[in-house]
């Protein structure tokens, strides 16, 4: 059961992040002051794909909530990071981000670390 939850969580997380990254880059720079957050809510209300991204986040969050009830936080949190590899590849090929050697090496170190923390 816990791996079904992990799979659902990963798919939802990847969809949420791709949609949100794509939409937020198009929306322009945002801030987190009270005014900035109000403006951000306004941006969200106007963008359907962003709302879809947030819905995916909700699915990801609810599966995470179910997972932490039965599993320790130290399993649930690293398990949720299996989306990491998939998302980094999609960031390069779908979002056209430039991932140089240093960023790739850093991402791999983080991934190895997350796996070690989780197992």
């Amino acid at each position: 059961m816990r791996w079904v939850l992990v799979a659902a969580m990963v798919i939802a997380t990847v969809a949420a992040d791709l949609l949100q990254s794509h939409e937020m880059k198009r929306a322009g720079e945002q801030s987190v002051s009270a005014r900035g957050l109000a403006r951000l809510l306004h941006v969200i209300a106007r963008r359907r794909l962003l709302i879809l991204g947030i819905a995916c986040n909700a699915v990801s969050f609810l599966t995470f909530m179910a997972l932490v009830q039965t599993e320790p936080l130290s399993f649930a949190v690293p398990a949720s990071s299996s989306s990491f590899v998939l998302e980094t590849l999609l960031a390069k090929f779908v979002l056209h981000e430039r991932i140089g050697a240093r960023r790739a090496a850093g991402a791999l170190a983080v991934l190895a670390g997350v796996v070690l923390v989780g197992s």
Binding site: K25, S31, T88
Partner: peptide
Amino acid sequence: LLTRMALLSLADLSFVLPVTA
């Protein structure tokens, strides 16, 4: 979540993922 969306408006997904780790 809202703060992370603001972060995604400022930085790449491939930057945000590892640093938020």
